[in-house]
Simulated scan of single mutants.
Amino acid sequence: MAPKETRWGILATGGIAETFTKDLLIDPATRNVQNVKHAVVAAASSSSLSRAQEFLKSVGAPASAKPYGSYEELVKDDNIDIIYVATPHSHHYQNVMLCLEAGKNVLCEKAFTVNAAQAKKLVETARQKNLFLMEAVWTRYFPLSIYVREAITSGKLGTVIRVSADNSFGVIPEETFDTGHRMVNPDLAGGILLDTGIYSLTWVFQTLYLTQDPKTRKPPHVLSSMQKYPVTGADELTTILLTFPRDPQEGGDMHATATGGFRTSNDIDGKGTAGPAVRIQGTKGEMQVWAPIFRPTRTRLILKDGTTDDKNWPQPGPGQGSGWYNGFGAKKNAEGEGHGMFWEADEAATALLEGRKEGKYKSLDESVLIMEVMDEVRKQNGLTYPEKIETTERITL
């Protein structure tokens, strides 16, 4: 059976959109995906038509792909099956709602929204309109992540008790970001929590929450601490302690720490010598995952019976000799190596093919729950963003 083609529209033309779209255009057969394939049929920039034209050219989109100089024009294109929203998370709510109101399925970059109220409103709208909606937490769809979760659900680690996950930069923010940069600008919901903390929470939730029976699992209790970046007031160091309730006969409560910071690093020399950035610990052993935890390629399983199993998980792609490169920002991957954003695109396309309205490995309800956790962290530490990006009213940003 021939693969089903999914026609994508790209909303925004920044760095993450370029990385995603270049991955999207890789032949899925290079990663042994046979049921779907992808086509880029349009892209829109909010700044100008020429920027959209430049973007489509830079990613290698076909000449037939249409450029648009506004998001409003993009969502009216009848040839689009699904729109990938790649704006800063401060703008996700307004941009996704625009797509949903136009009847378009959506894959939205993480963090899903700025707060849980916005997330709930998007989910409610998607369900009312019978549209597909998914938060683009790409890491969950990696074969590496599936392997880690299977080690938990199979009982290989015994009863899992504790998880620690850290996603830190190792930069001096005063030297790295100007005050308008999305990483430190409160007007763009900048700071550690929504940008990098979401990855630490991803590892905690996909190991301690997703692996539980949906009928009996419960939201975690949350304690947190935060240090503000004095220049802008965004959070620069955030530590979250989560307690996941579990019946005593199942092993009792599970604990987790999810951390992130600008000035600290979980991969000091870029060679992995700092050790694992994620540790999933059970009664029979532990699973370790090396940084970067948003795009990990290395795991180690260590069991009490003496078993040690090291695995490398390189991302597939066109391969060496192809002359093709992808990456994010100034960092490029090895020649012919994809970035890994195609796994979430394959899942979204497969869901459309199967008639599902949300992702297999992260439900919309779980996306809302994680936003509620981040709301609680902000509440505990007095972190707020401007009303214009916290609101659920329809406005123009």
Results as ranks from 00 to 15, higher is better:
207 T>Y: 10
229 Y>H: 06
216 T>W: 07
242 L>R: 11
233 G>N: 03
222 V>K: 09
213 D>M: 10
222 V>G: 07
208 L>N: 07
234 A>Q: 00
210 L>Q: 06
242 L>N: 10
240 I>L: 09
213 D>T: 03
234 A>R: 00
201 L>R: 03
223 L>K: 15
222 V>E: 10
220 P>T: 02
214 P>C: 06
229 Y>R: 02
207 T>R: 11
238 T>F: 01
215 K>Q: 14
200 S>I: 10
233 G>L: 03
236 E>H: 11
201 L>Y: 07
212 Q>Y: 03
212 Q>V: 02
216 T>Y: 08
241 L>S: 13
224 S>C: 07
217 R>S: 07
197 G>R: 04
198 I>K: 02
237 L>W: 13
198 I>S: 04
223 L>A: 14
200 S>H: 07
199 Y>V: 08
205 F>N: 12
227 Q>E: 15
204 V>Y: 04
211 T>S: 06
232 T>E: 02
213 D>S: 07
228 K>W: 00
204 V>M: 11
212 Q>I: 02
228 K>I: 13
217 R>H: 06
234 A>V: 06
228 K>D: 01
227 Q>M: 11
235 D>C: 07
213 D>P: 04
240 I>S: 04
240 I>H: 05
199 Y>E: 08
215 K>H: 10
217 R>L: 05
217 R>V: 06
242 L>G: 10
211 T>C: 15
225 S>V: 07
234 A>H: 00
235 D>T: 12
201 L>H: 10
228 K>Q: 04
224 S>Y: 05
240 I>K: 03
239 T>W: 06
208 L>F: 06
229 Y>C: 01
211 T>Q: 06
237 L>T: 14
216 T>N: 08
222 V>R: 09
238 T>M: 12
226 M>Y: 01
221 H>G: 13
198 I>E: 01
238 T>I: 15
216 T>I: 13
198 I>L: 11
243 T>R: 15
231 V>M: 09
199 Y>G: 00
226 M>Q: 11
226 M>H: 03
240 I>T: 09
238 T>H: 01
213 D>K: 10
237 L>F: 14
206 Q>L: 11
197 G>H: 04
198 I>V: 15
234 A>G: 02
243 T>W: 06
226 M>W: 02
237 L>Y: 14
202 T>D: 15
238 T>P: 03
231 V>S: 08
206 Q>C: 13
224 S>R: 01
222 V>A: 09
239 T>R: 12
212 Q>P: 03
215 K>R: 13
223 L>G: 09
230 P>H: 09
240 I>G: 03
242 L>H: 11
203 W>P: 01
235 D>K: 03
200 S>C: 09
202 T>L: 13
215 K>F: 10
213 D>I: 04
207 T>I: 05
229 Y>Q: 01
209 Y>N: 03
211 T>H: 06
201 L>C: 10
230 P>G: 05
209 Y>L: 09
218 K>T: 12
226 M>R: 08
242 L>M: 15
242 L>S: 10
242 L>I: 06
215 K>S: 14
